[in-house]
Structures are given as C-alpha cells and as structure tokens.
Design a protein around this nucleic acid. Structure first.
Lengths: 207, 207
DNA sequence: GTCTATATGGAGATAGAC
DNA sequence: GTCTATCTCCATATAGAC
C-alpha cells in the first residue's frame, strides 16, 4: 500500500462500496450512492470495474486475499505451537478478522459485508467466493476435525456449520450495538473474541 | 384459514413475496416479480398493502404471530414438564420453526426470510420486529438465564447472541444444500434440530 | 483518466375506467 | 376489487469530448 492509496479513485470507490454494502446490502446499494460517497464521477465505476457485479467481487478480493493469507499463517503457527488445541485453531480464524475490525482503514465494515454474503443465496457470488477462498475453510475444517477424533463425520459437519453461523454473525456485530459505555472498541472486540472461542469450542466438543 | 385462503389475491401475493424475499432479499425483489409470480395485476400490491415496506411487514406478521404463539406455548410446557432443562427450552424455540419448515404451505421459505432480516440493518424493519415480537426473545432469554445461575450477566449476553446466530443460520439452511440422498426432508430437519440443541446447550454451558 | 450527456430499461406508485 | 395506462424517478451502462 502506498501512502496515497486511499486517495486513488479506485480505492475510494472500493471503500465507499464496502461501507454501503455493509449497511444496505448489494442490491440495496446503487452505484450512484457509491460514487457520491466516494466523491468521484458516476462513470468512474464502469471505467474501473466494468460492472456492478465485478465491483462486488473486487470489494471481497481486496480484503480476502490478505485475510485468507493471515488466517492460514495463524493456523500454521497454531498447529506447530499449540498442537491439538481447538481453541488455538479457532483463534487463528477469528483473530485476523478481529484485526481487520480494529484496523484504521475501514476494515470493520468488511466483516459485516462478509455476513451479508453468508445470507445471500446469489449463486454467482457464492461461486466466486468458493472458487477463490474455499480452500481456507477446508484447511480449518481439517484441523478442527483432527482435534475431535471421536466425532462422527456427520456430526462434525453439522457442528462446523453451526460454528460458522455463530462466528459470522457475532463478528458482524462486533462493532455495532452492544458496546457498553466506558469500554473501548478494542477491549470490546477482544472480549467478544474470547467469549466466542469458548462458546464454539464447547459446542464443537459437546458430548 | 378458510379452504380458499391460498387462492385469495392477498394470500397469493404474500406467498410469492415470501419466496422471492427468501431468494433475492428485500431490496433485490421487485413488486413486478412478486405480482408476476402471484399471477395478479401489478396494481394489486398497492391496493392491498399500500407500499412495498408494508408488504414486507405483512409477510413477517402472517407467520410470526403464529410462530411466536407456538414458541411461547412450547416454552411454558417445557418449564412445567422439564423444569431446569436447558435442552427443553432450546427445543421449545427450535421445534415450532422446524414445523414451519416442514409445513406444506410454503413455510420453509419464511425461515430463510427470517435469516435475511437478521442480516439487515434496516432500522424500520428491526423496529417493527422488535416492537411486535421482542417479548418472545426476552422470555426465552429469561428462561435460559434461570438454567445457568453461575453465569455472569455479560457472559450470558454474549452467549445468547452466539446462540441466536447459530440457530438463525442453521435453520435457514435446513432445507437447502446439505441433505444427503436417501434422507427425507423430515429426517434431515429433525437431525439438524437435535444437533443444534446439543451444540447450543454445550456452548451456553461452557466453563 | 475523468468528465458531461444520454441511452435504455425497470422501479414504485397512482388515476380512473370498468 | 381488478384492470390499463401512465407518472415520475432512478437504475446500470455507454459514447464521446476533453
């Protein structure tokens, strides 16, 4: 990232789109809202991205390339430093997303965009995400399975799904309504991550 | 419900809207799509519902009035028949939604619409749901809290939130991708409910 | 690369005949 | 209650000057 990245037309469009997608959804956001918030001309979106669908994909790509890499690095570290620890694996998944939320460059909206994507049944978007980032989820699933040798394949499958739901929606709400007065954003998120890890680990281990 | 209910213009609009909202979201569905699928005239929506926003609200009201009543009845039964059982409380919440999914009158789409609502940050919709159905969630929260006397207030709060995320998203996917061949819809849903209850109960009880 | 201007279509909503 | 016809506005996308 160069020092001027956030002043590029392209980056400004991506940032504005991310915030609006988080708030209004993909269909609920018009390119006019995006270009107006980014303070660029309406024609700039089609010049730089070709179509609205491609803009959506690029909003994901900008963050997910890095997030996926960070998650896989953290997973690798967890598997060598804390072998057999379910909590360490869950932390490797959650903490990079947390870092994004606390990032000064507007990453907090992106976590909510991810939650939106989870609710979307749009096949094209799902295929884009699955093709490009599905391997990350598969690596985590394998690592978690290895921690729970007694668990049947079907049960594991269900529980991973529940865990994904809890993680996605909890993370999406990290920066939102629930922070009590006198608690900093950072403290609040760290608390949420800790609680989430305990909850999911217990659920995955349920007898 | 009369025998002709499903052939009324109003009911046909509500049914079509429910299915389309589940698939494309609220903003992603046009009233033209709705009236086309319901096979009624485009002007009928405004005649019967006044506006798109009000149509959305009525789609919720049609199912939530009955679902809420069933959930509260089941909660009352659980508290008297199985006092102190966390699993019974969770079942009282989940099983009426499950019955909707298995219902022959198209209730399965509605569970996905509920999941959409959870992702929406639309304040007007949230206020409508909170004003009309918030008391149901509060009653369940109280009953769950009573089962977990050792748990701090904040921790309880977090865990209820995670539980809601897992429930909502798991239920939304009940009828979708994951059913293996040779397993009936009903068996699949019952299995999901059982697993979900175990997962959530363990997470809520986590040490 | 960025602008103005515009093409083309679809959105929600309503008026008024039947 | 239901229809046709239409209003008004806004959507995505593009053409072509600068």
């Amino acid at each position: 990232m160069t020092a001027t990245t956030h002043f590029n037309t392209k980056e400004r469009i991506l940032g504005a789109a991310e915030e609006l997608f988080a708030q209004f959804g993909f269909a609920g956001t018009s390119l006019r809202q995006v270009t107006s918030r980014a303070d660029v001309n309406i024609a700039a979106v089609n010049y730089h991205f070709g179509s609205k669908e491609n803009l959506v994909n690029e909003v994901f790509r900008r963050r997910l390339d890095e997030l996926s890499e960070n998650r896989l690095k953290a997973l690798k570290a967890a598997l060598t430093e804390s072998p057999g620890s379910l909590e360490a694996i869950l932390a490797a998944f959650i903490e990079p997303a947390l870092a994004l939320t606390l990032d000064r460059h507007g990453g907090s909206a992106f976590v909510r965009v991810l939650a939106r994507a989870y609710a979307e049944k749009n096949d094209r978007l799902r295929k884009f995400l699955s093709d490009n980032y599905g391997h990350v989820l598969r690596d985590f699933a394998k690592a978690i399975a290895a921690c729970l040798p007694g668990l049947g394949k079907e049960e594991l499958y269900w529980r991973l799904d529940f865990t994904a739901g809890a993680l996605t929606y909890a993370m999406a709400d990290f920066g939102l309504i629930k922070r009590p007065a006198g608690v900093s954003e950072q403290q609040h998120c760290e608390r949420a991550a800790r609680e989430l890890i305990r909850f999911a680990a217990a659920g995955l281990r349920a007898v």
